[in-house]
């Protein structure tokens, strides 16, 4: 099959590599998706002060630990990029899997937290606050899972020293996923 890379892909009129440019546009489109959801939440939250009664039940400690886990995993993907640029594929491979492990820890903590909430009777249909809580965090968790899958796929290439630039691309995406959480954590957990 004609899978040779087109000339178009190798050009760089803006001076920015095409892959990186595309990832920024992906992030742009993601910002408006999360932005729209959080804007709805914020406007309703400001309208209904009594939502604070619901949010007082969220587990700020678990959220805080998760913030720490996710930020640490961002550090490891940055280091993976550092070694990928130096063509040290084994170190890059290890650090990518450290990032995947970070994502896994995040999901496990989230799973424990959600199980506890549901056992306490706070489900997605309990009230509008909880609907937003599960929808926003769930959408974010889907992005975490997608990022982990992509990293696993990229790590195979990295071992063969192929497509090393993709470590940077997934790194940009992972930082974005991180940043979304930085917005979700205060809005859903800290604001009591």
């Amino acid at each position: 099959m004609g899978t040779t890379t087109p000339i178009a892909t190798t050009r760089s009129v803006t001076g920015m590599p095409t892959g990186r440019l595309a990832v920024w546009w992906v992030i742009g489109s993601e910002i408006v998706i999360f932005g729209g959801l959080l804007m709805c939440y914020l406007m309703l939250r400001l309208k209904f002060p009594h939502w604070a009664l619901n949010s007082s039940h969220t587990n700020t400690f678990a959220g805080g630990v998760n913030t720490f886990v996710l930020l640490t995993s961002s550090l490891s993907i940055v280091l993976a990029h550092y070694y990928a640029e130096r063509k040290e594929e084994l170190k890059a491979f290890g650090l990518i899997w450290a990032t995947i492990f970070g994502g896994l820890c995040f999901l496990v903590i989230k799973g424990i937290e959600w199980t506890t909430e549901i056992q306490n009777g706070f489900t997605i249909t309990s009230s509008l606050f909880w609907s937003f809580y599960y929808t926003a965090a769930g959408l974010h968790a889907l992005h975490v899972i997608a990022g982990m899958c992509l990293m696993g796929w990229i790590s195979i290439d990295v071992l063969q020293k192929k497509n090393m630039h993709r470590v940077e691309l997934i790194g940009i995406y992972w930082h974005f996923v991180d940043l979304v959480w930085i917005f979700l954590f205060p809005l859903l957990y800290i604001a009591k």
């Binding site: 993601e30 408006v32 998706i33 999360f34 709805c40 509008l128 609907s131 929808t135």
Partner: peptide
């Protein structure tokens, strides 16, 4: 791209309203 995002979020909300009975 700039306008579809909020509606995608809205579609997720509407889908939950339709299927699992949220009240967005």
């Amino acid at each position: 791209m700039a306008s579809a995002g909020p509606l995608i979020a809205g579609a997720a909300m509407l889908l939950f309203d339709q299927t699992i009975g949220t009240g967005f």
